[in-house]
Amino acid sequence: MPAFSLEPEQTAWCAELRALAAARLRPLADRGEPGHVNRPLLAELGRLGLLERLFTSGALDLCLMRESLAQACTEAETALALQGLGAHPVHAHGSPAQRGHWLPKVAAGSAVAAFALSEPGAGSDAAALSLAAQPDGTGGTRGWRLTGEKCWISNAPEADFYTVFARTTPGAGARGVTAFLVPADRPGLTGTALEMLSPHPIGALAFDAVPVTADDVLGERDRGFAVAMGTLNLFRPSVGAFAVGMAQAALEATVDHTRRRQAFRGTLKDLQAVAHQVAEMALRTEAARLMVYAAATAYDQGAPGVPGRAAMAKLLATETAQYVVDAAVQLHGARALRRGHLLEHLYREVRAPRVYEGASEVQRGIIAKELYATAHDQEAR
Results as ranks from 00 to 15, higher is better:
residue 46 G to K: 00
residue 138 T to P: 02
residue 12 A to T: 13
residue 235 F to V: 06
residue 354 R to E: 01
residue 374 T to S: 06
residue 297 T to F: 07
residue 243 A to H: 12
residue 255 V to L: 12
residue 98 Q to T: 11
residue 45 L to N: 05
residue 210 V to Y: 12
residue 287 A to I: 12
residue 220 E to I: 03
residue 267 T to S: 08
residue 60 L to H: 06
residue 42 L to W: 03
residue 185 D to N: 15
residue 30 D to P: 03
residue 44 E to D: 07
residue 7 E to M: 08
residue 56 T to R: 15
residue 123 G to S: 02
residue 304 P to A: 09
residue 239 V to L: 09
residue 76 A to T: 11
residue 237 P to W: 11
residue 56 T to N: 04
residue 369 K to E: 02
residue 75 E to N: 11
residue 186 R to E: 04
residue 241 A to T: 05
residue 283 L to D: 04
residue 313 A to L: 09
residue 22 A to W: 00
residue 289 R to Y: 03
residue 69 L to A: 08
residue 22 A to Q: 06
residue 316 L to Y: 06
residue 163 T to I: 05
residue 369 K to L: 07
residue 25 L to W: 02
residue 180 F to N: 12
residue 359 A to I: 03
residue 74 T to Q: 12
residue 8 P to G: 01
residue 40 P to T: 09
residue 153 I to D: 07
residue 63 C to W: 14
residue 155 N to P: 02
residue 376 H to L: 14
residue 250 A to P: 07
residue 77 E to C: 13
residue 64 L to K: 06
residue 368 A to Q: 13
residue 227 V to E: 00
residue 52 E to T: 08
residue 274 V to T: 14
residue 373 A to Q: 13
residue 106 V to Q: 07
residue 289 R to K: 15
residue 211 P to T: 13
residue 188 G to F: 07
residue 306 V to E: 04
residue 172 A to F: 04
residue 348 R to D: 14
residue 184 A to S: 12
residue 112 V to S: 09
residue 219 G to Q: 03
residue 223 R to I: 03
residue 118 S to N: 10
residue 10 Q to Y: 12
residue 275 A to M: 13
residue 374 T to Q: 08
residue 178 T to C: 12
residue 365 G to K: 03
residue 363 Q to T: 00
residue 63 C to T: 08
residue 73 C to A: 08
residue 97 A to I: 06
residue 293 Y to N: 08
residue 294 A to Y: 00
residue 66 R to H: 15
residue 123 G to W: 01
residue 52 E to M: 04
residue 245 G to A: 07
residue 177 V to Q: 04
residue 172 A to D: 12
residue 219 G to K: 04
residue 282 A to H: 11
residue 67 E to G: 02
residue 258 T to M: 03
residue 141 T to D: 10
residue 263 A to E: 13
residue 310 A to L: 05
residue 311 A to I: 08
residue 184 A to E: 00
residue 305 G to M: 06
residue 363 Q to W: 00
residue 94 G to F: 02
residue 207 F to T: 05
residue 111 A to N: 10
residue 371 L to E: 06
residue 120 P to L: 06
residue 169 T to L: 11
residue 265 R to C: 09
residue 93 H to F: 12
residue 213 T to P: 10
residue 211 P to K: 04
